[in-house]
């Protein structure tokens, strides 16, 4: 193993244990690791965006490809940095307005298309067929039940989120079923999140006991 690799593994172990030490309580070792994390993360993104966007896209685009329209983006980007100077900080609203407008315009169409239209399309499927264009009665019994649950669950969930009408009578009963679906969803999401965090923890333990201590071969 190379010396740099060895030093790196020891550094990784020091930082991993430092973060885990927070379980004992807030302590200087954790705070040191936290400060290293904040500083190196900021530096990581600073450099990554410099080479990927500012150099590759802007500098190369203007100087080598002759795309002078990029200068407008460069000027707007520079104006964004004026936020650091309090007297003329207001001018950073221009690039901010550009970003907000771009995101609003982009989301207006794309969210409606992918998160509304596509989801509705995927929810309302042929009941007795496997999919669109397939022969009727080609779906299994379990498949039919699942489609009913998905369509019904989505509908009742949406009814629960509709607050312009009081949740009473048949509407209230539908909203009640919607709550059950939402609670099951939250429970499933919670379980899934816990397991993903556990997976990360296992990865770190594997690093400590395998790469560092060499107890796991």
């Amino acid at each position: 193993m190379e010396m740099s690799e060895l030093i790196g593994i020891w550094l990784g172990a020091f930082l991993t244990l430092g973060i885990i030490s927070f379980l004992y309580g807030d302590n200087p070792w954790y705070k040191l690791c936290e400060a290293i994390f904040v500083g190196s993360s900021a530096g990581y993104w600073f450099i990554t965006l410099f080479w990927d966007n500012i150099y590759s896209k802007f500098y190369v685009g203007v100087t080598q490809d002759g795309n002078y329209m990029l200068l407008v983006g460069g000027v707007l980007g520079f104006l964004m940095l004026m936020r650091l100077i309090s007297k003329i900080g207001w001018i950073s609203r221009w690039p901010l307005a550009f970003v907000v407008g771009a995101i609003a315009g982009f989301y207006l169409i794309n969210y409606f298309s992918s998160n509304v239209m596509y989801q509705v399309n995927a929810t309302i499927m042929p009941l007795f067929g496997s999919g669109y264009g397939d022969p009727i009665f080609s779906a299994s019994f379990g498949n039919v039940i699942n489609k009913i649950i998905i369509a019904g669950g989505t509908f009742t969930g949406l009814v629960y989120f509709f607050f312009s009408k009081e949740h009473k009578g048949a509407f209230g009963a539908t909203a009640k079923v919607g709550i059950w679906v939402i609670m099951l969803t939250f429970g499933a999401s919670f379980g899934y999140t816990v397991m993903s965090r556990m997976s990360l923890l296992i990865g770190r333990m594997d690093f400590i006991f395998g790469d560092w201590l060499g107890l796991i071969k």
Binding site: N53, I54, L70, G73
Partner: peptide, 17 residues
Amino acid sequence: DWFSIISACAIWLGALN
């Protein structure tokens, strides 16, 4: 293109701040 340049500068702004 402008959006990606401004986004990079926004991250720079955060780091410099």
